[in-house]
């Protein structure tokens, strides 16, 4: 089955991001396809490369990057939500005249249409959030 996953909450603050990532891994192990993971609301904070959790804790952002690198999963951060919360890729940072970017490898920033298109293309769309 083909899934689109929406992540609505930030990492560490809320379990939704963990559960979403565990779902993605479990689905892949069972041979399903993850068409896209779309990060919205505070979920965009899953896509910064600047987080440093304690060493004995899981590293959620790296977990996403590994999923992208290993399985080619499309990790999409909503641009409108990202701009509000300071998640920037190099192009967007330049366009906004900012002095830094922070997007993690494997993520890309795009529009809300990617969520709707994911819903159209996938057999199931699953929302993880509050």
């Amino acid at each position: 089955m083909k899934f689109t996953v929406q992540v609505n909450e930030g990492p560490y603050q809320h379990q939704a991001a963990d559960t979403a990532q565990q779902f993605v891994r479990a689905a892949l192990e069972k041979g399903h396809e993850i068409y896209r993971v779309f990060f919205y609301h505070d979920g965009v904070n899953n896509g910064t490369r600047l987080t440093v959790p304690p060493q004995d804790d899981r590293h959620l952002q790296k977990g996403w990057t590994e999923l992208a690198e290993k399985h080619g999963i499309d990790l999409v951060i909503c641009i409108a939500a990202a701009q509000r919360r300071g998640i920037m890729d190099p192009d967007e940072a330049k366009r906004q005249g900012l002095d830094a970017d922070n997007i993690a490898p494997g993520f890309r920033i795009s529009g809300l249409g990617q969520l709707i298109e994911g819903g159209i293309q996938s057999d199931r769309t699953i929302v993880f959030g509050d």
Binding site: Y40, H41, L112, G113, L115, I116, E117, I120, D130
Partner: peptide, 19 residues
């Protein structure tokens, strides 16, 4: 919380996809 506002933003975008 921002859920309602950002929900409305998705709804408006969805209209462009003629669903």
């Amino acid at each position: 919380t921002i859920y309602a506002l950002e929900s409305l933003e998705v709804v408006l975008i969805s209209a462009a996809f003629e669903q």
